[in-house]
Amino acid sequence: MVMKSKNDNNYAIIVNNVSKKFKLMYDKPYTLKERIVFWKKSKVSYHQVLKNINVKIKKGETVALIGVNGSGKSTLLKLMTKIIYPTEGTIITNGKLTSLLELGAGFHPDFTGRENIYFNASIFGLSAAEIDSRVQEIIDFSELGEFIDAPVRTYSSGMYMRLAFSVAINVDAEILLIDEILAVGDQHFQDKCFAKLKQLRDSDKTIVIVSHSLGPIKDLCNRAIWICDGEVKEDGSTKEVIDDYLKVCG
């Protein structure tokens, strides 16, 4: 365990010397037979995704993670949510955390939209009473109207996304981690999501966004972190970082 010092309480997320390696196995031995027969035979190589990352995110900050594909942005986000664990280093988060890595994870196709709201929100750690008080707000935000009581499998992909986004954004987490999902629904709904995100930003929630849509990000975030080949290349105001990023990758 890492001791928390007092001023750490001002931070929502502290990433400390974090490295992450993924084990790459060709012919991964899943069964006992394979484990015995191919003992010490299976080729193992490691893919280093993140190298010695140090990031501190203050409470109330809105941070964008940018970088080219495969640079390790999403891995960093997954580490922050504790879906995966770092090979080295530690990650400390303060406060209730919600992640939108993939919209509608855990939706059950046979259940109605309303039931899925309950199910999905419970995965985010809400109690029945908390969901009850929010369910109308979520339905209104999703603009699904009467379809809310139809099974989710009958939804169009846009409706599906809208419902998923509405649940996640109304969970009322202190820290919100979002992975490239600003492109939800039609223009009207996108604008609405964007407005909601701005509102969350101004209500001192901590938001971390991974995105390639640099335009909206410039508008939304006050800080950007450029990750390149698993290392922090630049960390600063959104405008400067994005300008430098565009010089190299644009």
Binding site: T81, K82, I83, L97, S99, L101, E102, A105, G106, I123, F124, G125
Partner: peptide, 9 residues
């Protein structure tokens, strides 16, 4: 597995 990969709980 599907949900474990995508959401923390």
């Amino acid at each position: 597995g599907g949900i474990i990969k995508k959401v923390y709980f």
